[in-house]
Design a protein around this nucleic acid. Structure first.
Lengths: 192, 192
DNA sequence: TGTTAGTTAGTGAGTAATCACTAACTTTGC
DNA sequence: GCAAAGTTAGTGATTACTCACTAACTAACA
């Protein structure tokens, strides 16, 4: 489990990356944002790499949480997918700094260890989404003339690009609203 | 126009970013890769920001070139879109280091000027793609029950995610082949 | 044609600032 | 009284960038 201070450090990291990219995530900036000295950071994380791992871990826990809730309800696959993305848009809307990290794998690209962790996370989420898609295809509410893996890429890719545009626009449109519109088009295309 | 040395610097920049992310793009690494001293770099670019702008400019010219060729042929919108993405996959396959820059906007996120340039570039390409989509919709070979803007996001987003996965996997699958497969599914979904 | 002046592209040495990180000491709270 | 969490004051390495200077080439002109 994370201590209060560790949570604070991870949250501050999200904010810093959101504000100025990975280059803004320095120990100095972290300590300034939290209001303690630089060495104090090292009382809670061994080194910077552990902080970066902590960011990924935090993201992992959050998505596992979200997916767990949605997977365990009684809805069919199609509705679950809808719920998943709707909830995602809401989370991003409430906490835009998450976006800068979640869909920006480049941040972790310069370290092979982190790169592999990111790839693993993406693969995990892809597998879960594919399961939901197959569920929907089996009860014949989603078209089955293209493979679930392609639908998964299509869904995730579309959402990612939409969110990336939102970020590049300095969050100047309503991501929940636009997300729901785009989701409706996806439904039109994917229903049988 | 760029001098030979400037071209060399931009190319070396692509390689460095590809190898170790934006953090690997330092004047020292650049000079080492090219084989000249650090100050010599400054004979050809005023500062690092100008190099980053040069990278974006280079990308802009390349895409304009590609899009120009495809827009000016006689094919219908659907075929043009197919050609566009097929050609894109081929380019990525031949020069993977481009991918690390093109679909990694975070690289330019820490400077507002660069961020705006990236956003502008994305918007331009989106507009062009939407034109092709509308062409195809008008001659009734692409479904018109969802707006062209949504189809554009869907197409670009899917391709981006596929390419990103390819990058994260250390290019260990055939992007041209997988790209064509995914493209076929998109065609199935989008044709009337 | 030979000299002079100017340009281009390079060099080694060095700048201040910043990076992640540490040793040694002090404060705080159970 | 002791461990955890904080501090100040540093470390060497690296960052983008500048300094004075030079070799090689080109243009101008008596």
């Amino acid at each position: 489990m994370l201590s209060e201070r560790q949570k604070e450090i991870i949250n501050a990291s999200f904010e810093l990356i959101s504000e100025g990219g990975i280059q803004a995530l320095t120990i100095k900036n972290l300590s300034k944002k939290i209001g303690i000295s630089e060495p104090a950071i090292y009382r809670h994380y061994e080194n910077k790499m552990q902080i970066l791992c902590g960011i990924l871990e935090s993201f992992k826990i959050q998505t596992a949480n979200l997916l767990g809730k949605i997977l365990n309800n009684d809805d069919n696959g199609f509705v679950k997918i809808e719920e998943l993305f709707t909830r995602l848009f809401q989370i991003f809307n409430e906490n835009p700094s998450i976006v800068a990290v979640i869909f920006s794998e480049e941040i972790f690209m310069n370290e092979e260890i982190l790169k592999n962790k990111v790839a693993g996370l993406m693969k995990e989420n892809d597998n879960l989404l594919q399961k939901l898609i197959i569920q929907a295809q089996e009860v014949n509410i989603m078209r089955s003339d293209i493979p679930a893996s392609h639908i998964s890429t299509l869904l995730m890719g579309t959402v990612r690009l939409l969110v990336k545009r939102w970020q590049l626009s300095n969050y100047n449109f309503n991501i929940v609203e636009e997300g729901m519109n785009q989701l409706n088009s996806l439904k039109t295309i994917l229903k049988v």
